[in-house]
Design a protein around this nucleic acid. Structure first.
Length: 493
RNA sequence: GCCCCCAUCGUCUAGUGGACCAGGACGCAGCCCUUUCAAGGCUAAAACCGGAGUUCGAAUCUCCGUGGGGGCACCA
């Protein structure tokens, strides 16, 4: 276990919806920070102006807060190493890029995008790997400096070593060795003066004193480049960890936008913003995400504090993981069952309100224990408990007819139930159930038939929480009213 | 095409050379409980990608295959 405080960061681009994988990455970073008493930092990699989407930053900060992954430093809360948006850090990158050019480790490049495109196309035609041809690498530094001073458009490229190998060390995967001839002289600073991801991230990780870079495996192929940038400066390297990617449920390819739409049809999503609406709770989502890329031998139901305690960067998984929404359902239901009655009631209330139902708080507190173990998602409270808050229920007439009986016989059962219940001083379940059971005995019918009719009459549905406890909450008056209405329906059949 | 990464039940995973006829979880099947639906309890089926090597001993180390994934932008 790491004991020195870790400074870690989540560095998303505000270019789309906050993805599940971002949540998982945030979680792992958060866990390491909390476990070591370090800091979790949010930094926005917003250097691709064209792709930056309004609202995307808000979605990320909202998503993190909803999940309970509070960050210690970030664009909206500031911190000692700000600003935390890369577009606000231009001079810092320019300063560092200049230093690299000074050292001879980088150089200005005046090639136009059009020329580069042409070169690329020709290379592809010759079935070569596309790469920068090095035209400006060999320019005289003095000439280049004069052209820059004259205001000529240019980018800054890293002067990569051309022979030998680069060995980059990943904490999870060990040494990754790549021959340097496979590298390009990558662009560090774009014509617009903003850094590319590669450069911006390395500079900021250094400036922000990041100790552990925990990110997805999509960065693995550029990892040696990043290491070369850090080494060109002579900076200390952080601990690098590239964890597993999330794959489509089929395991074929990484999650895409299309998969989000597909998942929505089944009441799931790969976007964090949808989770709450779909009735998932942060505890469930977090537990689910945590176990894709990290395995525990036993007791895999964990709350955030428990995860903080047990998380271990030495036991992460390197192989990609196919997402399994059934497992999300399972963890969500499990964590719902772990909530206190008051907590669950408070979380359920908005879902009733959303349906236009007026919630009686005292009743809700009594309802929660009845439906708790039936909920997979919070919005399941509607099919299970909406009837408590409706004035009338409208049962499907056919559902009122018990199996093995006809409408007339069923009406008779309902009438007897009405008599028995109206004769009771109270409708508390301990009072109401014994006489009803006695009636079942003497009638020769079975409990399913009798209780089934009453259930449909009183709740309006075939599936409901336990009948007598439910009737107690609904109240004698309403129960009798609903029974009466059911009798009328049956008599008309 | 080139480069890199990965490989245990259908899926997520435990496993760091002997404690493994491979453990847990989801899902699936059966049973129990039960007024419906759940939840819960019990039981079952289900995996070390293939081949060489190292070793007294390999799921674990090495190599080669195969399969899967990621990347090859003035995107991140």
């Amino acid at each position: 276990m790491t004991t020195t405080p870790a400074r870690v960061r989540l560095a998303p681009s505000p270019t789309g919806h906050m993805h599940l994988a971002t949540a998982r990455n945030a979680l792992y970073n958060f866990l390491l920070a909390r476990q070591t008493g370090g800091q979790f930092i949010l930094r926005l990699e917003d250097t691709d102006i064209k792709r930056t989407l309004p609202g995307a930053e808000q979605e990320i900060t909202d998503g993190l807060r909803w999940l309970g992954l509070e960050y210690d430093e970030g664009p909206d809360i500031g911190g000692p190493y700000g600003p935390y948006r890369q577009t606000e850090r231009r001079e810092i990158y320019q300063h560092h890029a200049g230093a690299l050019v000074e050292k001879g480790a980088a150089y200005p490049c005046f090639c136009t995008p059009e020329r580069l495109d042409k070169v690329r196309q020709e290379q592809q035609k010759r079935k070569e790997t596309p790469h920068y041809d090095g035209t400006c690498r060999v320019l005289d530094p003095g000439d280049a400096a004069r052209r820059v001073a004259a205001g000529e458009k240019h980018v800054i490229r890293l002067k990569m070593p051309q022979d030998g190998v680069t060995v980059a060390h990943d904490h999870l995967r060990g040494d990754i060795t790549v021959e340097n001839k496979n590298f390009d002289d990558s662009i560090l600073l774009k014509t617009d003066g903003l850094p590319t991801y590669h450069f911006g991230a390395m500079v900021d990780d250094y400036e922000m004193k990041i100790t552990h870079v925990l990110r997805g495996a999509e960065w693995l192929s550029t990892f040696p480049l990043h290491v070369n940038i850090v080494r060109a400066f002579g900076w200390d390297e952080p601990v690098w960890i590239h964890f597993s990617l999330f794959l489509k449920p089929s395991g074929k390819g990484k999650l895409s936008k299309r998969d989000a739409a597909e998942a929505m049809k089944e009441g799931h999503s790969t976007f964090v913003k949808d989770m709450q609406e779909l009735g998932f709770i942060p505890e469930g989502v977090l537990n689910w995400c945590a176990l894709m890329g990290w395995g525990v031998p036993e007791n895999d139901v964990m709350t955030l504090p428990q995860m903080v305690e047990r998380f271990d960067i030495d036991h992460l998984t390197a192989s990609p993981a196919a997402v399994n929404f059934q497992k999300l359902d399972h963890f969500n239901g499990t964590h719902i069952r772990l909530l206190s009655t008051e907590d669950l009631a408070a979380r359920l209330k908005p879902y009733f309100t959303r349906e236009g139902l007026a919630v009686n708080d005292a009743a809700l507190l009594k309802i929660v224990p009845l439906i708790r173990e039936r909920l997979v998602t919070l919005d399941d409270c509607i099919p299970f408990a909406a009837f408590f808050f409706r004035e009338i229920v409208s049962p499907n007439p056919e559902d009122l007819v018990a199996k093995g009986l006809d409408a007339k016989q069923s009406a008779e059962v309902a009438r007897r139930a009405y008599q028995i219940l109206s004769a009771q001083p109270t409708i508390r379940h301990e009072d109401a159930e014994p006489p009803m059971r006695a009636y079942v005995e003497e009638s020769g019918l079975n409990v399913n038939q009798v209780f089934g009719i009453v259930r449909v009459a009183v709740t309006g549905q075939k599936v409901s929480p336990p009948l007598f406890e439910s009737m107690e909450i609904i109240g004698k008056e309403k129960v009798l009213e609903r029974l009466k209405r059911a009798i009328e329906i049956l008599e008309k059949m």
